[in-house]
Computed example of a mutant assay.
Amino acid sequence: MFGLAYGDALGAPTEFIDMKQIHRRYGFDGPRVPEGNPALVTDDTQMGIAVAEGLLNALENPPFTPDLITPIWRRKFIDWLNSPDNNRAPGNTCLQACRNLEAGLPWVKATQAGSKGCGANMRVTPLGLVPGFTDETRAAASQLQAALTHGHPTGLAASELTAFAVWWLREGMDPADLPGALRARCHEQRTTYHGDWLEDLWQQPGMESPEMFISRGWDECLAVLDRLDAALARLDRDADPCEATGAGWVAEEALATGLLAFLLFPDDAVSAIWRGAASSGDSDSIACLAGAFAGAHLGMDAWPAEWAGRIEYADALARIGGAWD
């Protein structure tokens, strides 16, 4: 949870500037330390906290089902929408979907069906920290939290992969094995549609079946994993990662570029978020994911101790992370 926020804060000032501007502002090395006291995060961390707090509320009243968690997440997302802290340039997809939720629309009508923006990826990371879930529950819940705002199948598949990457790293997977495990997951789940959780979301123009709908998302994730493999074969730690796996504005590219930043420095958490922040794309989101992966793999000792005292929402991050340590 802290890695998520550290990456978010480090990448926020570089989100809308290119590499030349980054080098002019920070020198060739780019940003290395989150700015400010407190170091401010963006909507990525805010909504990650909302998803996590919803999980904690739901897990107090088992069993964990879609009927239990859906109204809780709806309420958390609406609370975020109306929060005075919601002033960090959030994406239009999240804003419009949350307005629709607040208006009382069923979530399958409230969601933005054509959007696979990366907004759902960063906030799913807490689902990779919860012990005791079956793979099916972790997968279905990861896709549901995405689907509440981003209804495109690639947004669902990428969110599931993000959550599983965090879970596998937390459980001790060697980072070098991660791309292969994610690829295998894509193939295994390619036609799995979690109807009890996703209802009739699949009924979109051009879609003849739930399997046809969800396979589109898995296929796009497989394609970007090909680009990730090619980038890791080159292992160029000095290059802008967006040139290899995409700028990160859409879900599958955010996953792949966040993974690339992490896998270039699997044992150096600060360098992982630096590589995400020193990029030409959606830098806060890329660094946010890289930080979550690094934190799941390496733990709190991987970060400078003084950062924990000045990151925004430190109390919430500590409470959430501590609940699942």
Score class of each variant (00 low, 15 high):
Val51Lys: 05
Arg74Phe: 11
Asp67Glu: 15
Val124Phe: 07
Leu81Pro: 01
Ile72Trp: 04
Glu53Tyr: 06
Asn87Leu: 09
Gly91Phe: 05
Phe133Ile: 03
Ser83Val: 09
Met47Asn: 10
Pro106His: 11
Ile72Ala: 08
Arg99Met: 10
Val41Gly: 06
Leu81Glu: 05
Ser115Pro: 03
Ile69His: 03
Gly104Arg: 09
Pro126Glu: 07
Phe133Thr: 08
Arg88Lys: 12
Gln46Ile: 06
Phe64Pro: 00
Glu102His: 12
Gly128Cys: 08
Arg74His: 15
Thr111Phe: 08
Asp67Leu: 12
Pro38Ala: 06
Gly117Ser: 10
Thr137Pro: 00
Ala113Ile: 11
Gln112Lys: 13
Thr70Ile: 07
Ala141Cys: 12
Met122Leu: 13
Gly104Cys: 11
Ile72Cys: 09
Asn82Cys: 11
Cys118His: 04
Leu59Asp: 02
Ala139His: 10
Ala140Tyr: 01
Gly91Gln: 09
Cys94Pro: 06
Pro126Lys: 03
Ala103Tyr: 05
Ala103Asn: 12
Gln46Thr: 07
Phe77Tyr: 15
Asp135Cys: 06
Pro63His: 06
Gly117Cys: 06
Leu56Ile: 14
Pro71Met: 13
Ala120Asp: 03
Thr42Asp: 04
Asp43Gly: 04
Ala110Trp: 02
Val108Ala: 12
Asn86Val: 00
Ala113Gly: 09
Ala139Asn: 11
Asn57His: 13
Asn82Leu: 11
Asp43Gln: 04
Leu101Tyr: 07
Arg123Tyr: 05
Leu105Gln: 13
Asn57Ile: 14
Ala141Val: 12
Thr111Ser: 13
Phe64Glu: 02
Asn57Leu: 14
Ile72Leu: 13
Gln96Lys: 15
Trp107Leu: 14
Phe133Gly: 00
Arg88Val: 03
Ala140Leu: 02
Asn121Lys: 12
Asn121Thr: 14
Met122Ile: 12
Cys118Gln: 08
Pro131Gly: 06
Glu136Ser: 11
Ile72Asp: 04
Thr111Gln: 10
Leu55Lys: 02
Ala140Arg: 00
